[in-house]
């Protein structure tokens, strides 16, 4: 396990093909091997691995979307002074999607001339590609919207549900869209018939959702343990109970991280601890057992062999499992 201390808040961490990359509130990007990029003029608000698997794409409150690699950084797109709040990327389609205000924008990592801008009635809070990277779901007040990534003129499919939706994810089989909501619950839709799924009972807002075990489980934060919703068969979690692992009355799970193809789950707690668990097995493996500031960033590598975290005080660590 390696730990570092940064003098700014870490707002996101991702693993690219080479290692962990931290994105900071002072606008800089720190690579695990010590490389450094400082291209933003302001805070980094969101980050995702570049579709090529090399480096990180970050959105900032300076309205710029920047691709940082270990030896260079360049602006991919701008949002005319608006904050870039959310970003996602698809290795399958090579596309990058980001939101600024009410606009969803799509660019192509291999074609600098390609750009699509899609308007919403309310501010976009989250962006997620479907697994093949051809469609994009956005979350906003009043529900979610589904867009085809490349088509210039289109009307989105609106998935309506009253309330403020703050984040969105696609199930790995592309059959379900799930949003997190302002009032501490999830909402899901089965896309083939737009059937609603209400997934509630959380004591706190859900900040992170992540699929694991070949898409059979959706793990979320927002409770005293990590909450696991079964997504098995055509009905997903409908009519089934969620389970909770790592329950600890004295803390809340702030973030979770996992990989769809692997069965391991990492959780970062609001008391600074980080654990790893196999929901099919027994017990928790504490990667960071000492308590501290709340965990604000958490990621698992694509092979599920490494976990990176960071806390609100700038402490960061990378562990090999």
């Amino acid at each position: 396990m390696r730990t570092t201390t940064f003098d700014a808040q870490i707002t996101a961490v991702v693993f690219d093909d080479t290692g962990a990359i931290f994105a900071l509130g002072d606008g800089s990007v720190r690579f695990e091997d010590g490389a450094f990029s400082s291209a933003h003029d302001g805070a980094i608000l969101c980050a995702v691995v570049h579709p090529s698997g090399d480096g990180v794409v970050t959105g900032g409150d300076d309205g710029r979307l920047i691709w940082h690699r270990r030896d260079e950084a360049g602006v991919l797109a701008t949002a005319r002074g608006q904050w870039i709040d959310a970003v996602d990327a698809s290795a399958e389609s090579g596309l990058i999607a980001f939101s600024a205000g009410k606009t969803l924008s799509v660019i192509d990592a291999k074609d600098a001339g390609f750009r699509r801008d899609f308007q919403h009635e309310r501010t976009v809070s989250g962006v997620a590609f479907e697994p093949k990277g051809r469609r994009i779901a956005t979350s906003t007040y009043g529900g979610a919207a589904l867009w085809f990534a490349r088509i210039a003129q289109q009307k989105p499919t609106l998935l309506k549900w009253a309330g403020s939706h703050t984040a969105v994810t696609f199930s790995p089989d592309g059959a379900f869209v799930v949003t997190a909501m302002q009032d501490a619950q999830l909402h899901g839709w089965r896309l083939k018939d737009q059937r609603d799924m209400r997934m509630g009972g959380y004591p706190s807002k859900v900040r992170a959702m992540s699929f694991l075990s070949n898409g059979q489980l959706l793990a979320t934060s927002g409770a005293q343990g990590a909450v696991l919703w079964p997504f098995i068969g055509a009905n997903g979690p409908m009519g089934r109970e969620a389970t909770e692992i790592g329950f600890d009355e004295g803390s809340l799970v702030a973030l979770v991280a996992s990989r769809p193809k692997h069965g391991l789950l990492a959780a970062g707690l609001n008391d600074g601890r980080v654990w790893l668990a196999d929901p099919a097995g027994q017990g928790l493996n504490f990667l960071k057992a000492e308590r501290g500031a709340p965990i604000t960033a958490l990621a698992m590598s694509a092979d599920a062999k490494r976990v990176a975290w960071a806390d609100e005080d700038g402490q960061a660590g990378v562990a090999t499992v």
Binding site: D7, Q9, G25, D26, A43, L45, D61, G314
Partner: peptide, 8 residues
């Protein structure tokens, strides 16, 4: 977003 500029 503003809170992300907060330093330890």
């Amino acid at each position: 977003g503003l809170m992300k500029r907060q330093r330890p």
